[in-house]
Structure formats: C-alpha cells, structure tokens
C-alpha cells in the first residue's frame, strides 16, 4: 500500500500541528499512521515527519487529536486514560513542538 510522507514545522504550536495533520488526512483521503521528529535534511531544522496511508473514499476515520505530555509524565498512564475515554492511540513519539522536544500522543475517537 503506497505511503505518503509530509513535513510539519516543529516551531508551531501543538494545535497548529494538529490542524496541519488533519488537513493532510482530509484533503488526501488518507490517515496518519506515524508522526515524529525528523532527522532528514529536507525536513529542515526542527521539523516533524508524518507518514500516511490511503483510506478508501468514504471510510475516513475520525479526526486526529494531539496531546503533549509534560516531562516526567507517565506515558502508560496517559495512554490508559485516553483508552478509557474510548479513544484509540495512533502513535506516541517525541516531536518538536514550539521548538522543544516533546512527547506527543496521537489519538482518535473510535467510530
């Protein structure tokens, strides 16, 4: 299955990055499967990279929501809290957010 890749500016706020990722999904009829800070030169300084997989027209999953964890937060607890709210975890990776390395969880509401 073909995979697309796009870069997002890591100096942006988490909300701005969430908008970028949802725009990619909605416009391209695809879904984000991975999102993390990128070391590729093309990403530029402090860039994140999103990998996306195609979704057949009409089967678009619910919007992606990004949650930033504070330093020292328990990742397992944070994920469990999201799952208990009926959300599925798409990824949990270190990303650039407002130029700072931040652990970010990507979740969706279940359909």
């Amino acid at each position: 299955m073909p995979t697309a890749s796009h870069f997002v500016d890591g100096t942006k706020t988490l909300a701005e990055q969430e908008t970028d990722l949802n725009d990619m999904e909605q416009l391209g009829a695809q879904k984000v499967t991975s999102y993390a800070e990128s070391t590729k030169p093309a990403a530029g300084d402090k860039g994140n990279e999103a990998l996306l997989q195609p979704v057949p027209f009409g089967q678009q999953p619910p919007p992606l929501e990004l949650i930033a964890l504070a330093a020292g937060d328990d990742v397992a607890k944070a994920i469990a809290a999201q799952v208990s709210q009926g959300k599925t975890v798409v990824f949990h990776e270190t990303c650039w957010v407002e130029s700072k390395e931040t652990l970010v969880i990507g979740v969706r509401k279940q359909k």
């Binding site: 997002v8 909605q26 009829a29 093309a42 530029g44 860039g47």
Partner: peptide
C-alpha cells in the same frame, strides 16, 4: 526546504473536510 512543509489553516481544514465528504 521549509517551503515544502505543510501549511494549513483552520479555513483550509474546513474546506478539506468538505472535499473529503464530497469524495
């Protein structure tokens, strides 16, 4: 290379969602 980063606004997302519904 920064020009190749995705730049979306809320208005763009609203339009993208409308396109997706149409598809």
């Amino acid at each position: 290379t920064n020009l190749h980063r995705v730049e979306a606004t809320k208005e763009m997302l609203t339009e993208a969602t409308a396109i997706n519904h149409s598809l």
